[in-house]
Design a protein around this nucleic acid. Structure first.
Lengths: 233, 233
DNA sequence: CCAGACCATATTTTCGAAAATCATATCGTT
DNA sequence: AACGATATGATTTTCGAAAATATGGTCTGG
C-alpha cells in the first residue's frame, strides 16, 4: 500500500471528519505538528482540504483525547508538553497496563498466545531491516503498537483498553519528542522478547515487573534527552 | 440561580458547542435521553436550538467520553447499556478510585481536609431536606459528585482525575437507570460519613476498602433493580 | 511616557443550504 | 412467492458565507 500514491478523498466507509481526526492524530503523535503549535483554520484547511466545521469536529475529538488543547473562543493548539504531564502519563500507564497484563495472562486463550507471538515476530523482522533508527520507520511504529496491544488484548475490558490506547498515544508523542536527540535505542528487542516469554509462560509477576520497567525506563529516557523541550514550555 | 428562568443563549465566555455538550451530557446521564435512543438532527435541532454542525461537534465530544455511540454514516445514538458495560465501568472505577484515594490521603493538605469535610456537610444538609428521594434532587446529585471529587482531588494527577470523572459520569447514568425501580436508598449517609472519617484520619487501607464496597454495592444494586433494562438491549 | 478607549484587522464560531449517503418501497424477473 | 435491481424519500455529512469574538495598533488625555 504505497502511501505516496494520491490519497483518496477519504477511506472507504468513513466520514471525512473521522479521516481527518486520524490524520491529525498521527501528525501530532509524530510531532510533525509540534507541541504548543497553534492550529489555525486557514492553515489546516489548506493542509487537509476540509472545511471549517469538519476540522472543528476533528479538533474537538482530539481535545477529548488530550492531544489537542481547546481554548474557548481562541482556537485550538497542539497540547503542550511538560515534565509534569510526562510523569502523569507514565504513572497512569503503569497503573493500568500492569492491571491489564495480569488479567490478560489470566484469561488469555490460544488465540491470544498466537497474537502475542506473531506480533513480536513481525516486530523483530522489521527491526532487522534497519536496526539503527526503528522509530523513524512507520512500519516499526505500527508493529510495536500492535505487539503491546496484543499483550493486553485478552484482558476482557474494552473500557480499560480504550483508556490504555489513549495513554499509549500520549506517551508515544513524548517518545517522538526525544527521538531526534537520543544517542541510541536501548535493547528494546531483548525487553520485548522477555516480556513475551513471561506472558506466554503465565508468569504474571515477572511480566508485570518487566512491563513497568519497560515503561518507566522509556519515560526516563525521554525526560533525559528531551529535557530542554520539557523545561522550555 | 434559578434555572427555571429563561436560559441565556449560552453561558458566559463559552462557545455554544461547549454549552450544548454540557446540556446533552446532563440529559444522557439523567436518562432523560434513554440508552440506545437515536439522536436525530432534526429533533436535536428543535430541542437545543443549534445548527447541524454545532450539534455534530457536541455529539463527537460525547462519543469520545463514551456517552454517545457514533455510527459512521448512520448518525448518533445514546450509548446503549449492558450488563457487561456496567461490570467494566465498575471494575475500572474501583481500580482507579482506589489508587487515587491512596494518593490523596498521602498528599492531602489542610485545604483538602476542609474540602472533604465541607462537601460532606453540604451533602448531609441536602439529604435532611428530603431523605426519601435524594437522586431526584439535582442539588443532591451535584453535592454527591462534589464530595467524591473532593476526596480524590489531592491525588496530584489531572490525567487520572479526568479519567475518573468520565467513569463517574458513566456510572451515574446506571444509577439513574435503576433509580425508578429501587425500593429504598441504602444508608448512603452513613457510608459517606465513614469514608470521610477514614480519609481524614489518614487510614488509607480502611478508606480504600470502604470506597470499593461503596462502588460495588451501588453497582450490584443497579444490576439487581435494572435487570430488565440490562438484558433487554 | 503611560493607561485606557477606540478602531481596523485577523481569527474563530455559527448557520442553513447543498451534496452525499442510507433506508425503504416498488417493480420486474426467475 | 422469492430475489435482486432500482427509484424515492429521509437523514446524515460537508461546505463556504456570514456573524461573533479576539487581537493588535493608534490615538488621546493625564
Amino acid at each position: 500500500m504505497p502511501d505516496s500514491a494520491i490519497r483518496p478523498r477519504k477511506e472507504f466507509g468513513k466520514t471525512i471528519a473521522a479521516d481527518i481526526t486520524h490524520r491529525l492524530r498521527e501528525e501530532i503523535i509524530a510531532c510533525a505538528l509540534p507541541p504548543g503549535e497553534p492550529l489555525r483554520f486557514d492553515v489546516l484547511r489548506e493542509r487537509f482540504g476540509a472545511s471549517f466545521t469538519t476540522l472543528r469536529e476533528a479538533l474537538t475529538a482530539l481535545a477529548a483525547e488530550g492531544l489537542v488543547d481547546a481554548q474557548e473562543q481562541r482556537g485550538f493548539r497542539v497540547a503542550p508538553v511538560s515534565r509534569q504531564d510526562l510523569v502523569e502519563v507514565t504513572d497512569a500507564r503503569v497503573l493500568i497496563e500492569v492491571e491489564l497484563i495480569r488479567r490478560a495472562i489470566e484469561k488469555g486463550d490460544d488465540d491470544w498466545e498466537i497474537a502475542v507471538i506473531s506480533t513480536l515476530h513481525r516486530l523483530k523482522r522489521i527491526e532487522q531491516r534497519d536496526p539503527e533508527h526503528p522509530l523513524r520507520d512507520p512500519e516499526w511504529k505500527i508493529a510495536h503498537r500492535q505487539f503491546h496491544e496484543a499483550l493486553v488484548s485478552a484482558c476482557g475490558s474494552a473500557t480499560l483498553l480504550a483508556i490504555r490506547a489513549e495513554l499509549f498515544d500520549r506517551a508515544e508523542r513524548y517518545r517522538h519528542l526525544s527521538a531526534g536527540f537520543r544517542p541510541r535505542p536501548r535493547d528494546k528487542a531483548g525487553e520485548h522478547q522477555a516480556i513475551m516469554q513471561a506472558a506466554i509462560s503465565r508468569n504474571a509477576d515477572l511480566a508485570v515487573q518487566l512491563i513497568e520497567t519497560h515503561i518507566r525506563s522509556t519515560s526516563d529516557n525521554v525526560a533525559k534527552y528531551a529535557a530542554h523541550l520539557l523545561d522550555a514550555e
